[in-house]
């Protein structure tokens, strides 16, 4: 006779076998490094000489390190701007493409908006640096042509982070765009039609119907967009090496500089742990706040 209890045990063991690779992967490549970073953050270590216990002194130092504070501020500002911009543009593009009648044009636009995503951030930044060059960039050429005059896109401390936001958002818009296309496709046609008859047209239709009905998409694209943008490195690095001053220096860039250029691995790890906590808290916050505004059917 078959023993139910032992059958269950066998099944549980089998299940463990199936999840084991993933669990091992997470341990080795995610949880492990996080734990290791945390330990490192409590030590002085320059790779060459032996590690020396530092206690919380790195954390203390961070509070007085103006550059660290600036880079964290820059990073959060950058990520928030990117998320807002991507949501607005992704939403609008998807809305526009959805209304393109010819299906071949629709396919065309879908591919075009997705294309920058397959390029590397470095490549994009190299040619964008030319585009936004103050003196011979094409952007300023047109701005002068229409009489606005030239903007110091990459050399002004006020503008440089904004420019980086534009470049980054431009490259990644494909993801948000595709997410919103999917979001719109899930709105039943009749609901839109009912809105037409009910007199919900133009902006009202957008704010009363479209936005609430794609709120899960807005939420999702904000969460992954933020997590991704906070870790930005290559765009500001290639565009201006973080300059002028520290205006374009982001957290990951500073971590890299501290750890791999100055060989302060302990302090670099401290910065990394703080960044990790910021992402964690921001994500938890977003999940908490979404209950108030995201609507799931």
């Amino acid at each position: 006779m078959l023993n139910i209890a032992s059958l269950k045990k066998t099944k549980a063991r089998l299940a463990l076998l199936f999840v084991a690779p993933t669990m091992l992967g997470i341990l080795a490549f995610t949880a492990g490094p996080i734990a290791f970073s945390f330990i490192l953050s409590l030590f002085y270590w320059d790779v060459l000489s032996p590690m020396k216990f530092a206690g919380l002194s790195h954390y203390n130092y961070l509070l007085q390190d103006d550059v660290a504070v600036t880079t964290l501020k820059n990073t959060i500002y950058f990520a928030v701007m990117v998320v807002i911009l991507q949501n607005i543009i992704g939403f609008s593009l998807a809305m526009a493409v959805r209304n393109v009648a010819n299906k071949y044009f629709r396919y065309f636009f879908r591919s075009v908006f997705f294309l920058p995503l397959v390029m590397s951030g470095a490549t994009v930044s190299v040619f964008m640096a030319y585009f936004f060059n103050t003196d011979f960039g094409i952007v300023n050429y047109y701005l002068e042509l229409v009489g606005i005059g030239s903007v110091r896109w990459l050399t002004s401390t006020q503008m440089v982070l904004v420019t980086t936001v534009l470049v980054y958002a431009w490259q990644h818009i494909g993801i948000t765009f595709i997410l919103f296309l999917g979001g719109f496709a899930s709105i039943p046609e009749e609901v839109i039609v009912a809105a037409d008859i009910d007199g919900l047209t133009g902006w009202r239709k957008i704010f009363y119907i479209y936005v609430p009905m794609v709120s899960p998409t807005i939420f999702f694209s904000s969460v992954i967009g933020f997590i991704h943008a906070v870790q930005v490195f290559d765009h500001p690095y290639i565009l201006t090496r973080g300059g002028p001053g520290d205006a374009n220096r982001t957290a990951v860039m500073y971590i890299y500089e501290k750890a791999f250029q100055d060989l302060e691995f302990g302090y670099g790890s401290t910065l990394a742990i703080i960044l990790f906590l910021i992402i964690l808290i921001a994500t938890i916050l977003q999940f908490y706040v979404q209950k108030k505004w995201v609507f799931y059917e």
Binding site: E190, V191, V193, I209
Partner: peptide
């Protein structure tokens, strides 16, 4: 005119 649909078409939110 007002219209009523087979699948109700209520605003779910």
């Amino acid at each position: 005119v007002a219209m009523v649909f087979q699948n109700y078409a209520l605003y779910p939110h």
